[in-house]
Computed example of a mutant assay.
Amino acid sequence: MTREAPTRPSRRPAPRSATTLASAVVALVALGLALTLSGCVGDAGAPEDDTAPAPIATMGQPIPTGDGVLTIGALVPLAGADAPVGQAALAGMELAARDIHTAGGVPGTRLVIIHADAAAPGALAGLVARGADVVVGAVGGDALVTAGNDGSAAGVAVLGLQPGTGVDDAAFDERLFGSDPGLTSTASGVEGYDAVVLVALAALASGDDGAVSIARFLPEVSVGDTECASFGACSDALRSRLGVRYAGALGTLPATAPVLAGATG
């Protein structure tokens, strides 16, 4: 059934709280809890070409720990005043997953996005229990602060991105509405999109979808000499053995590497 898209709102929503996506911080964290969570948002499928690229040589290569499924957990607000921000972030993540698949994906790897309400008790632990390799969410939120300081057993990469710069892009917003016609705001949509692209590029660069490899290679796709604004362009550069800097879908990501904290492996 075709749904009519609502009147397009501004990318700027009602005032955002600490649940908004916040900036360029990556940490390996460990959680040993097992709780329930939400279902699958999107599955980009596996590309037909399963020839994995060799990892690029400018960084040490961790021992591969991936299982062929790159699972990204979205820890975003899904209820209350900040729900439009979380829904837009999810729409951006789904859109990125489809664009990555269309561009050839990460060879031999299936990309899956799962989600949980950032305000729900045990939400982060539940994403980890469901097999998230990477959790994307609000660094300022209590759950990710706890995650970044946790030192127990099982590792997951945690990534937060800076809230938008206020740049509006009508074409990108239209694409977000195509992903979810029910959106009432597009704020944080591009941040969700860029987070997924960065994670997929790190997996491509490392030749592994494990959390340790992704955390280790996120800087490698953030500060290289070759600037690119899409997964396809960046993956072409990586296959040519070039260091890349993903500049973001709107070209607004800062030219600085994500900070690694507590990386292990």
Rank of each mutant, 00 (worst) to 15 (best):
G155F: 00
F231K: 07
L21Y: 06
G248E: 01
V212S: 12
A249F: 02
L183F: 06
A233R: 12
E191M: 08
V145A: 14
R130P: 00
R8E: 11
I63G: 06
A187Y: 04
E191V: 05
I100Y: 00
T65V: 07
G68A: 07
L253T: 03
G73R: 12
D142H: 07
G66S: 11
T36H: 09
L218W: 03
D150V: 02
V128P: 01
P77R: 07
G131P: 08
A153T: 10
L111V: 12
D117G: 11
P107A: 08
A200Y: 01
D142Y: 03
L75P: 06
G126P: 10
D209Y: 13
T2I: 12
T165N: 14
L238R: 05
V167F: 11
P254Q: 02
A83C: 08
G148P: 00
L161Y: 06
L176S: 07
V41E: 14
S38M: 09
V69N: 11
R98L: 01
A147C: 06
L95K: 11
D67A: 10
D173G: 05
D99E: 15
R245K: 10
G189Y: 09
T71A: 07
G104R: 10
R12Y: 15
L201K: 09
A200G: 08
E4V: 15
V76W: 02
G32Y: 05
G232I: 06
L21T: 04
V190P: 01
V259S: 13
A54M: 07
V112D: 00
P107L: 08
L144S: 06
L21P: 04
D194H: 09
L70H: 06
T252R: 14
Q87T: 11
L33A: 15
D99T: 04
G105C: 10
G39E: 15
P13E: 00
S206L: 12
M93F: 10
A257P: 14
G66W: 00
V136H: 01
C228M: 11
L90A: 12
C234P: 00
D209S: 12
A118W: 03
S10L: 14
L218K: 12
M1D: 10
A27E: 02
T184V: 15
R98Y: 10
T58W: 11
G151Y: 04
A237I: 07
G141W: 03
A132C: 08
A88Y: 09
V85I: 15
V156N: 03
A247L: 08
G151N: 09
A74S: 15
V196H: 10
Q162P: 04
A157M: 10
P181Y: 09
A30D: 05
R16C: 08
S23Q: 07
S23T: 07
T184D: 06
F231N: 06
G45T: 06
L35R: 14
L201A: 06
G131F: 10
G251K: 05
A116E: 14
V223R: 10
D208E: 05
P84G: 09
A97W: 00
G60N: 13
I113K: 09
F217V: 03
G137S: 05
T71P: 00
T146S: 12
E4R: 15
G140C: 02
L90C: 15
V212R: 14
T186F: 01
C40K: 13
V244E: 02
S230Q: 07
T71Y: 02
G126A: 13
G160N: 03
S17A: 14
N149Q: 14
V139E: 04
